[in-house]
Design a protein around this nucleic acid. Structure first.
Lengths: 225, 225
DNA sequence: ATAGATAAAACTGCATGCAGTTTGATCGTT
DNA sequence: AACGATCAAACTGCATGCAGTTTTATCTAT
């Protein structure tokens, strides 16, 4: 019993496939695997010490998530968001953020508004400290709240998925000089509009916010080519 | 050689998994499988005369598409879009259509605008004939052009996916009295705005159009409960 | 008669094996 | 020397088998 349980504790965090999805997604999102790189089933299976079956299913799911591309009888490859899609992806992201901001301004509960405001104010400390790592985490949370605030699960799903694909590029944006303070100021605008239930103002601010991130990220991507 | 080729001709239309995805999606979308119904791997495998492996992978993909739900160690079940998600899905759809219409008004090429206008005009014949089947096909095409016109592949993908999930409900909407003519009139508004490059007008008209479809479909869904 | 326990049947999760396809390296030809 | 053909190694697609879990049917006790 203990043996079995132990094995589960180690292996479990959902099924093997779920783990594989998370693990491989992590490799991609953190940049440990470059776009265009091949993901062959056998190597991955060996690497994580499972058989090819869960690997295959994970790859299929990652394909659906857009993180890898597949063709029949060929290895899966890490999707190259860089190449053609970057601006398209950011545009989509901006549109989604705009929707979420507008709906959030209309629908957020009092608690949600207060929570957003509080966590935003708290983040000022991180800006002053210049703590990029912590601010990135805060930023993630901030936007997640916006997405949740729209109170529409399907939109939430779409925006989350899109964000996942853009993750590699967003990650490094705060390195650029002054981005932290700028980001904070932009958040401020969004928060203010939402607190006022100013749907159009929130929408505009959120759209602009992503556009700026987009430019910053494009610069970053160009640097690393 | 001929033997092999023949086998391919029969089997081929992509890989086995792709076929399974299409086949099962069809079962769901056409209503041959009701929401909540269980999809057990063995039965499906037997039904389509393949092994469980491609069935499993197809189910995983269908899950990603949102057509079926899964839990570890349980059978996949046809997603019950009806229950809670219907209005949420339509709302998301409306937002996406709004974006597409706005971007289409801004970006469509001259040919795209002309094509949209022509096919819209041609559809008047179907309205007069009261040909629901043909009009449904036209409607599909019409909206697809709107999505393409946005010139953003990622948005196209999202909207296509969302539409797929709503397909079962959209299908029957034209049965309701007068829907054909109303739909045509609404399309007219969208087309007019796009031809004028009136982004906001197109956005507004498209949003309203989906909202009305939503109501019609909700009625339909309620009827069939 | 109903509720709960128990055991068997059914089904999912994963591993493994084989067939067919792709990849890439070697050899021969121009 | 460069290009193309040929063949072997590597890899994907799918089938099948076993272990473990869920589901269902039967039996027992209140």
């Amino acid at each position: 019993m203990t043996e079995k349980k132990k094995r589960k504790d180690v292996i479990r965090a959902g099924t093997t496939v779920e783990q594989m999805v998370r693990a491989v997604a992590d490799l991609i999102v953190t940049g440990q695997m470059q776009p265009g790189e091949r993901l062959d089933e056998l190597s991955l299976a060996a690497r994580f010490d499972v058989s090819r079956t869960p690997v295959r299913e994970a790859l299929r799911q990652l394909c659906a998530m857009g993180l890898v591309g597949r063709q029949p009888n060929r290895s899966a490859v890490v999707t190259n968001v860089t190449d053609s899609h970057l601006s398209v992806m950011f545009e989509a992201m901006a549109e989604l953020e705009r929707i979420c901001a507008r709906l959030s301004a209309e629908r957020m509960t009092v608690e949600e508004r207060r929570g957003l405001d509080l966590m935003h104010r708290a983040s000022m400390r991180l800006v002053h400290a210049g703590d990029q790592e912590a601010y990135a985490a805060h930023n993630m949370d901030f936007h997640t709240r916006l997405y949740r605030g729209a109170h529409n699960d399907h939109i939430f799903e779409m925006v989350t998925q899109t964000r996942a694909r853009l993750a590699p590029f967003r990650h490094a944006q705060f390195r650029l000089a002054g981005r932290l303070a700028k980001s904070y100021a932009e958040h401020q605008e969004i928060v203010t509009a939402i607190l006022r239930a100013d749907a159009e103002g929130a929408a505009r601010a959120a759209y602009a916010h992503v556009s700026i991130v987009s430019e910053a990220s494009t610069v970053f991507a160009a640097d690393h080519r």
